[in-house]
């Protein structure tokens, strides 16, 4: 039973990464009409950013949690200003190809300097150790990751669905021309949205650094799983992305316990099943 709970916890942690990443993909897709293939590379940059802050600047985990998303977010906004914005009006496919190229560049540069092996990142002192919950032993850091991700996801949902800024954002997604006519600077909103999505990816990177080690290719395979998550959940709804992300993480964790051979493939198999039964994805909007 212990092992089952442990795998469930691993599933929840992976689920929080899926949720944070697919949330960012959905936000970016809504505004820019681009599937951000560089999302995995930017997630990796978040983890490396935390690593550099600690080892070069002596800046601890808590500040990294704030600074890394901002730094990588700014990097993302520069990408958007210098490259992505020129794709407006072109076929969707070019956005995918361009961001794939960016991902190759970023991952290649990091691989050159850091190889393919992992760099350690220590768990901060305050979150070391574990708690005995009676039915299982819960490492504090892992519990923290799940709860903190959930809070960030819900805060993002609140920001987009319930605030005035979010209302502008949703309006600009529906009809950018009309929103511009109201005097709102839509291009700047697009840049900020990309920064927000990228920041979420970087945040997931910082959270994962103490668990998964910091590797140049840590995001490369993850992003493909997240794509499958996005296909299952659809990108129409923010809450849909969050729930699908966590749910698929848990299902993956359960598979690791009951049938470990399929743990790598279960998300893809579920994607196939969802496509066969309900081709529009679970949240139901046609692309």
């Amino acid at each position: 039973m212990q092992a089952l709970y442990a795998q469930l916890l691993v599933g929840l942690i992976n689920g929080s990464f899926y949720a944070l990443l697919s949330l960012g993909l959905a936000v970016i897709f809504g505004m820019l009409n681009i599937i951000n293939f560089a999302h995995g590379a930017l997630y990796m940059m978040g983890a490396f950013c935390a690593y550099f802050l600690l080892n070069l600047g002596g800046i601890n985990y808590w500040w990294a949690l704030l600074l890394a998303p901002i730094i990588v977010g700014i990097f993302g906004m520069i990408l958007e200003r210098t490259m992505l914005q020129w794709l407006t009006g072109l076929d969707h496919l070019y956005g995918l190809l361009l961001t794939f190229g960016i991902a190759l560049i970023v991952q290649g540069v990091f691989q050159n300097y850091f190889g393919s092996s992992g760099l350690p990142y220590a768990i901060p002192d305050q979150l070391r150790g574990g708690m005995n919950l009676g039915f299982m032993f819960l490492p504090v850091y892992r519990g923290w990751v799940v709860i903190f991700s959930l809070v960030v996801c819900l805060a993002t949902w609140f920001l987009i669905e319930k605030t005035r800024l979010g209302a502008y954002l949703r309006a600009a997604t529906e009809n950018p021309t009309l929103v511009r006519a109201f005097g709102i600077n839509v291009p700047r909103m697009i840049t900020l949205t990309y920064g927000l999505g990228v920041g979420l990816a970087a945040l997931a990177g910082v959270l994962s650094a103490p668990i998964n080690q910091v590797r140049p290719l840590m995001g490369a395979d993850l992003i493909i799983v997240v794509f499958a998550v996005v296909v299952i959940g659809g990108m129409g709804s923010i809450m849909g992305s969050i729930i699908t992300g966590f749910a698929l993480g848990v299902i993956e964790g359960l598979t690791k316990y009951f049938y470990p051979e399929a743990s790598n493939t279960v998300v893809f198999v579920l994607m196939v099943l969802v496509l066969l039964v309900k081709p529009t994805g679970l949240t139901g909007r046609a692309a």
Partner: peptide, 28 residues
């Protein structure tokens, strides 16, 4: 049969995911 069910950008993501699925199958 599976991937044609979705258009545009989703089609690309589905084919990528399917090939990754196959990669893991061939790995084992």
């Amino acid at each position: 049969y599976i991937s044609i069910r979705r258009q545009g950008i989703y089609f690309s993501m589905i084919t990528l995911a399917l090939s990754q699925l196959l990669y893991f199958i061939y790995l084992q």
